[in-house]
């Protein structure tokens, strides 16, 4: 009896200590979470419920959302980032995977040098990357006119309505492929070589081993990287904003949803509608990530 109640007492003390110290350690994050995530989101949602015009501000419920989802500027931007996602994500991940597999099969000094170079753009801010490529694309300052002349060809006009899509895909691919490659490469490193040793003895080719063993073994990393790249692309902002300085007629202010929200809040002074656009975009991104994680539940590393 006595020992039982002593044990119960000890448990109670431990539980109380857990409660007190657990919250003490996590509360600073809780405060930051509340101040810089919950409150802004709630406030943005609240604002999106109102509309301001010359007669004042009045409650309009979901009218702003109806407007957003029938607004060609918002829908156009959304469609554009979806198109970017469909094109860019496979290119980046495909290249990252090829480089990771090659470097994994080809371990020497030259390979580690290549790995460093491919990763280098990640250490350069997106703004500077876009600035550099913007210069490179320029007819007067960039090298492509000369390079293409060498082959007797005319350089493509990058900063025109037909060239801008590819131009932006290229900037982002240059910037992010190395980052994804490093993640995939490390996943490959963690596979035990014993796994493909027997396959090799059975005479399987390197290509076959890569396809049937290595790629399935790093599936969880592939899924994670896809989510990162998906979320990043839907939020497209920095690169088109920087290139817009050089090609204002090709990239308009509603080129992507984030640019549109920024312009509405800043230049057009429509904070309520800007809040609506931001909230809608955030909602769509979360929705996409959840759907994607559900579809690939087994592989995803971001659970529990």
């Amino acid at each position: 009896m006595a020992s039982k109640s002593a044990a119960a007492h000890r448990d109670r003390v431990a539980a109380r200590r857990g409660n007190i110290w657990g919250w003490t350690f996590t509360i600073p994050f809780g405060i930051v979470f509340l101040l810089f995530l919950v409150i802004p989101l709630v406030y943005a949602f609240y604002m999106s419920m109102y509309t301001t015009n010359v007669f004042g501000t009045k409650f309009t419920g979901f009218a702003n959302y109806v407007r957003a989802f029938t607004d060609p500027a918002f829908l156009g931007g959304l469609g554009r980032v979806l198109l970017y996602t469909v094109v860019m994500v496979p290119i980046q991940l495909g290249l990252a995977l090829i480089f990771a597999l090659l470097l994994d099969a080809f371990k020497n000094k030259f390979a580690s040098f290549s790995r460093l170079v491919i990763f280098l753009p990640y250490a350069i801010p997106g703004v500077i990357g876009a600035l550099m490529w913007g210069f490179m694309y320029s007819k007067n300052m960039g090298p492509f006119t000369t390079i293409f002349e060498l082959f007797g060809m005319q350089a493509p006009a990058f900063l025109t309505s037909s060239g801008i899509f590819g131009a932006l895909v290229n900037v982002v691919t240059w910037q992010w492929t190395g980052y994804y490659m490093v993640i995939l490469y490390s996943a490959l490193q963690s596979i035990s070589p014993d796994l493909y040793e027997s396959a090799r003895i059975d005479g399987a080719s390197e290509l076959r081993i890569a396809w049937s063993i290595k790629i399935p073994m790093c599936a969880s990393s592939l899924v994670m990287v896809t989510i990162f790249s998906l979320i990043g692309t839907l939020q497209f902002y920095t690169e088109p904003t920087v290139l817009r300085n050089q090609a204002p007629t090709v990239i308009d202010t509603s080129y992507t949803p984030n640019m549109y929200a920024g312009a509405l809040a800043f230049s057009y002074n429509q904070p309520n509608y800007a809040a609506t656009i931001s909230f809608s975009l955030g909602f769509i991104v979360v929705l996409f990530s959840i759907i994607f994680m559900r579809l690939t539940k087994r592989q995803s590393g971001l659970e529990n």
Partner: peptide, 19 residues
């Protein structure tokens, strides 16, 4: 915390600016 990982950081920029 896990949910916050999914919320795109740029979706918070305009709300932060307004507040």
């Amino acid at each position: 915390v896990l949910g916050a990982l999914m919320i795109p950081s740029t979706a918070l920029v305009i709300p932060l600016f307004l507040i």
